[in-house]
Design a protein around this nucleic acid. Structure first.
Lengths: 133, 133
DNA sequence: GCTTGATCCCGTAGTCGCTACGGGTTGCAT
DNA sequence: ATGCAACCCGTAGCGACTACGGGATCAAGC
């Protein structure tokens, strides 16, 4: 009735996540337990949506659920924790950089092998050769 | 003995993978079942090591186990499959490129947020703000 | 030949972040 | 009042391993 209390379906949709994912977040303690209708359906308030969006945005930026848990705790504890948040973000950037470097390295190898393929007269497939070495 | 028949431990070590991983690969049909000693221990031949190294190298280059299964089948079927192998590698390069682009995008966002932090006088933590939007 | 300690056996369960399934209940509009 | 969408819950599956535990086997030293 009257728009107060989102259903889990609407909440999920409004944050762009799967309904089951919301239940999952609740199960692992990332989303707080919402109120219930008399019949037992979950009923969410606007702050739940805020929380869910925070989680989703953090996921999009590659944070793990444990990191997000810490970020939430920090974000609820005050301005002076900004440095800790920044440190977490900085650490994360470092690991993202490492992943990018990894991917670029393997891409180089793959491109070289594919290029060798197109080169023409290999006796054996250069890609397979690369993999077999 | 005299060097014939590697134990699973030596095989794993020689390819730089975990012993349990070799058993896992066997279970899912990626590694062929080796012979056994009278007491039931696995006994590997050089071609097993070749296979395992192929798998590991392919994993390092980011291929999934299913893709590796196909690569092995192709590599065992002859030279004229080179084009198919090349196509698989090309597809993989495309998905690697997409991953790199994703990571670079999120890195930009993170760096900006962290930079805003260091900027000085934000009322609320810019990283948290970024996540909460 | 016997003991010791490393290695191996097997099955099962845990990891991360979801996603899917299925059978039953509730909510709401007609 | 009825129909059907949406919800409930628990459980199992994904990929690619990794870990655990209790028992068997292997190889080397004495």
């Amino acid at each position: 009735m009257s728009g107060r209390g989102l259903t889990i379906g609407r909440l999920a949709e409004s944050a762009g996540v799967n309904l089951e994912t919301v239940r999952y977040y609740e199960r692992i303690g990332l989303m707080p337990e919402p109120g219930r209708t008399p019949g037992g359906h979950r009923s969410y308030e606007p702050e739940h949506r805020q929380r869910l969006r925070f989680i989703r945005r953090s996921r999009e930026l590659g944070f793990g659920l444990d990191a997000i848990r810490r970020l939430i705790a920090l974000s609820e504890s005050g301005v002076e924790t900004c440095r800790e948040v920044r440190d977490m973000a900085q650490d994360h950037i470092t690991s993202v950089d490492a992943k990018i470097a990894d991917l670029q390295r393997l891409r180089r190898v793959l491109r070289q092998a594919v290029a060798d393929c197109s080169d023409g007269v290999a006796v054996r497939c250069p890609v397979i050769e690369e993999l077999g070495s």
